[in-house]
């Protein structure tokens, strides 16, 4: 049984302009100790998926309109508030995308770590403070003991992010949801944090749902990757084979756009032309079709179903690119 299994998740927002269908039937599973990366265009539903797993989405104004989120066999969508609170920050912890808005502005970061610990663990104040220093050391906060008393707005962007990672790791969760955990970090600190997460996974069997737009980090860190587009998984599979031979034209566009260092400085960068469709009125067919170089009239008729591509790969596309390395042909 996977540690986390998301089935047909749908998360919607009611706005004055209509229903924003942010997540539209996401299927995803994560095994114990495994790292699954969730990538996709800005606004494609990565954070909303994460918030839905923890049921934080209601507080954010959203509604889970359908699906199941099974964590260790229990449906998170059916838990009462008390049981949810026992899971959040304890068995499932989250590193939020925007540290400054996730951290409490009127509490020192030391207090925030201590509270996270004491909420779920039977631990004295003194021991909790020592543990907080240890955690700040682990996430490479400079002068950790002195920083304990510091308030979020007095820290640099990267320090705030590390403070938040320390809070998330406080209770050694079974599942860590890391939403852009290293965007504010320099490459050296980023590598140290990724090493730390790997080490915890090895030692504690922690699983990770890693949300990032940094495909290099995905290649370095994840076992599997799922590509989201307009609230749907359009492709998933093991990182290496998927990056070597993307099947979905959207994935391929992403991988082509990444090559900044190979271009002359100051030159125009490759982008995927066009814009994501409105989530208020998704097209009846494939949501990527209007921007797709391989689209045919069939793509506009109905949504493509998820199909197996071999070697644990899945894609939802009528005209996928197929790996030519071994001369495989469409199924």
């Amino acid at each position: 049984m996977p540690l986390l299994e998301i089935r047909g998740l749908q998360t919607w927002f009611e706005t004055r302009a209509g229903t924003v269908k942010a997540v539209n039937g996401v299927d995803l599973s994560i095994e114990r100790g495994e790292t699954v990366a969730l990538v996709g265009e800005s606004g494609s539903g990565k954070s909303v998926t994460a918030y839905s797993v923890l049921r934080l989405i209601e507080a954010a104004g959203g509604r889970i309109a359908g699906g199941e989120v099974l964590f260790d066999g229990t449906d998170m969508l059916r838990l009462d508030l008390a049981s949810l609170r026992a899971v959040r920050g304890n068995r499932i912890a989250m590193i939020f995308q925007e540290p400054l808005s996730a951290l409490n502005p009127v509490q020192s970061i030391g207090t925030q770590i201590v509270e996270a610990l004491r909420l779920h663990r039977d631990i004295g104040l003194r021991a909790a403070r020592e543990r907080a220093v240890e955690l700040l050391e682990l996430v490479r906060m400079p002068s950790p003991r002195e920083r304990l008393e510091e308030y979020p707005h007095r820290l640099s962007g990267g320090m705030r992010q590390r403070a938040m990672i320390a809070i998330a790791l406080a209770c050694e969760p079974d599942l860590l949801i890391a939403d852009e955990p290293t965007t504010a970090l320099d490459v050296t600190t980023q590598a140290q944090i990724l090493d730390l997460l790997r080490e915890l996974q090895g030692r504690l069997g922690m699983a990770m749902l890693l949300i990032t737009h940094d495909l290099g980090v995905v290649a370095e860190t994840a076992d599997r990757v799922a590509v989201l587009y307009a609230g749907r998984v359009v492709e998933q599979g093991p990182v290496e084979t998927l990056f070597d031979a993307p099947a979905h034209p959207y994935t391929r566009g992403l991988l082509d756009a990444v090559r900044i260092e190979e271009l002359p400085p100051g030159s125009r960068l490759p982008e995927i032309p066009g814009m994501v469709p409105s989530l208020l009125a998704l097209p009846p067919g494939c949501a990527f079709a209007p921007r797709c170089p391989r689209a045919t009239p069939a793509c506009d008729a109905g949504p493509p179903a998820m199909r197996a591509g071999g070697e644990g790969r899945l894609h939802a596309c009528f005209n996928p690119w197929l790996s030519t390395v071994e001369g495989r042909v469409p199924a």
Partner: peptide
């Protein structure tokens, strides 16, 4: 850090 939260394609568009 004006493009740090953007996927590569949108980042390319903004740059």
């Amino acid at each position: 850090e004006a493009v740090s939260a953007l996927d590569v394609s949108v980042r390319a568009q903004v740059l």
